[in-house]
Structure formats: structure tokens, C-alpha cells
Design a protein around this nucleic acid. Structure first.
Lengths: 114, 114
DNA sequence: TAGCGGTACCTAGCGATACCGTCTACCAGT
DNA sequence: ACTGGTAGACGGTATCGCTAGGTACCGCTA
């Protein structure tokens, strides 16, 4: 079965991470903990790392290795031009979906609009 | 890759179909064509049928076979008590996700220039 | 009467993605 | 020496929507 939030995140998590990176560059561990604090409490570290590898392969982010004071070096990701384009695409798709779903929520009173 | 809307529908399509059924009972072909007209233009028949089989197995809907004037008999699905409960759960999860994502859209770098 | 399009349902296999568990590796404080 | 926090990686699993077909019935038309 799996909890519903997990399934809903499919297809949206990438946009969420890109949105985080659009604010400022960040590294994986940081992204995970920040999103966890912002309410995505079930988010799993491994998921974010895998997603970052994917967006890097698709050329949506630039990567820079930065030495860390604690632990291994950080891979700092920053959104590039293609990434910002993709983020725009995400917002468009999201808006469409959200609009249609909200329509379904308030529709029951109306019934048939045909 | 796949188009982004397809990925975003994962986890939400079930709720969408349950919402449609909450208005009034319907059969698979009807649900597909109605949603297609309402903007989910890429939605595929097979997807809806498979989804209906799943929600039936999980006991969220009641099924009744009704003879059709054209073609094979219709399987009319209606939302039962468990289905309505599940729909409520869907709306709660959706609201949470939508709220957090909208927050990301307008958020201006929390810990830095604010 | 043969063919076509619309209605209505069903299925096997594929691709994408999030989760799970576990691992490596480094450092500070006790 | 041990624990806990930081940082990244990987193989396996499950879910779910799509692809790409198939079956079956009906009315209309060439």
C-alpha cells in the first residue's frame, strides 16, 4: 500500500528540490534536513541523493565540491539556466493539476456542467 | 523521462477518481471520457480500469453490472463508506502537500536575507 | 453483407520514482 | 574507544501510470 504522501511526492519531489535550489545553492544533506523541518517529515535521505544524481545527469544543476569542517566534502548543487527552465515547467504543470483538482473539490454541488 | 503530468498524477489519480465517484456512481468508460473533457486530456482508458480494479479489491467501492444499449454491460462503481473515508484522507494529504508547495513558491530565502 | 466507428471492458509488460536497509567515511566530545 | 552528527552512495522492492495491444457488442453505410 504505502502511505499516500509517498505516492503523491512522485513527480513533485523533483520540483520541490529545484525550488529549494532556486533560493540558493545547497548540498544534499542540507536539502534533506531543511525539507524535513518544513513539513516533509517522512522524506528519506537516500531519495534526495538519488534525485540529485538524476538532475545532475540531466544537466539541470551545476556541482561544486566544497570541503566541510565536519565529515566528508559537500557536493554543493546550484540551479543553472536549464534548471530554472525546468522549474518553470514544473510550476506550470503543478498549477494545472492543482487547479483541476480544486475544481473537483468544489464541484459536487454543481454536478453536470454540460 | 515521461511527461511531467504523468509522473505528477501518481498518487493523485486515485483521489481524483474517488472524487468523481463521490458526485454520483459511474462506470469506467464514462469516468475516462469525463476526466478527459475536464482537462486530463492525456488520461488513458487502461489506467482507469486498472485503478478501478485496485480500489474495488481494497473495498472502497461497490460494483453493479448494468446492461448497456450499446456494447457490453457496464460496471457501475459507487463510493461506499470506506471509500468516502479514503477520499477524506486524500483531501487531507493533498491539502498538506499543496500548502507546502505553495509555501515554496512564495518563500524568499528564510535564514538569509530575512 | 462486409466494413467501420463508437461503446465498454480487460491485460501483460515497461519505465519512472520513492522508500528501505545498509554501507563507507570523517570528525568532535566524552 | 565509543557515540553521535555530518555527508554521500547503492542494490533491491513496491507502486503506479502508460504503452500497446486484445475481446465483444451495436448501428450505420457502402
Amino acid at each position: 500500500m504505502g502511505n499516500p504522501m509517498t505516492e503523491m511526492l512522485k513527480g513533485t519531489l523533483e520540483g520541490i528540490v529545484l525550488a529549494v535550489l532556486s533560493v540558493r545553492p545547497a548540498y544534499g544533506y542540507e536539502i534533506t534536513t531543511r525539507l524535513r523541518e518544513q513539513g516533509f517529515s517522512d522524506l528519506v535521505e537516500g531519495t534526495v541523493y538519488a534525485l540529485l544524481v538524476r538532475v545532475e545527469r540531466r544537466g539541470l544543476v551545476d556541482v561544486e565540491k566544497v570541503a566541510s569542517e565536519k565529515g566528508p566534502p559537500r557536493k554543493v548543487y546550484s540551479l543553472n539556466a536549464r534548471g530554472r527552465e525546468q522549474l518553470g515547467e514544473f510550476w506550470r504543470t503543478w498549477s494545472l493539476l492543482a487547479e483541476r483538482i480544486e475544481q473537483l473539490r468544489t464541484e459536487p454541488a454543481e454536478g453536470q456542467n454540460r
